[in-house]
């Protein structure tokens, strides 16, 4: 091999490596960028009807986030029929149990989807149902414990075809 040939080889190796590195960096960056974009996405609008219902139910108190798990599919193709599971961490003893769970929609024409009344006889605070959602929105589960404390959980769900008139 001539000296010139060697040089050419080195360059091409270097180029390939730098290409790989650049490609790798871009691949790493892409999800980071996507995450940044997601974070900067504006919060979903919450209807006035929801705000009124929420204010009435909380009566000025600030519910503590957590303890409440609200399971909804990430994406609902049909907003007329969305499976929902709500559960609240609680020993469900006569001294400490979940009394009420409200399910609230932030974008339906009627905010209060349902209210479930529980007592220690339930053993666990878990309820399942199927709900209607008019469009992409946050769904909120607001629970009142036997000592009066309020806890809540929020889940965002994308809705492809809205439940026409929920």
């Amino acid at each position: 091999m001539t000296a010139q040939g060697k040089e050419l080889l080195t360059i091409s190796v270097l180029n390939r490596r730098s290409l790989l590195i650049a490609g790798g960096a871009a691949a790493l960056l892409r999800p980071l960028l996507a995450m940044a974009q997601e974070e900067s996405a504006p919060a979903l609008e919450r209807s006035k009807i929801f705000q009124e219902a929420y204010t009435a139910l909380t009566a000025g108190a600030t519910p503590v986030e957590g303890k409440v798990t609200l399971e909804l599919p990430e994406l609902a193709e049909n907003g007329n029929f969305v499976p929902l599971t709500v559960s609240v961490e609680s020993p469900m003893t006569p001294d400490d149990y979940v009394k009420v769970i409200h399910i609230l929609s932030t974008a339906n024409p009627v905010a209060r989807i349902a209210t479930f009344h529980l007592s220690p006889v339930n053993g666990v605070a878990k309820v399942q149902s199927r709900i209607r959602l008019a469009k992409t929105q946050d769904v909120i589960a607001l629970a009142q414990l036997s000592n009066g404390a309020l806890v809540m959980g929020t889940t965002t769900i994308k809705v492809t075809i809205g439940g026409c008139s929920s």
């Binding site: 349902a114 209210t115 399942q128 149902s129 209607r132 929920s166």
Partner: peptide
């Protein structure tokens, strides 16, 4: 004895499905 009660709104799907738990007394 009443063991569970639900107040439902129009946001519940047609043919309402409701599941709850009971600690058998």
């Amino acid at each position: 004895q009443e063991v569970f009660r639900a107040d439902l709104g129009p946001g519940i799907s047609a043919n309402p499905f409701i599941a709850f738990s009971l600690k058998v007394p």
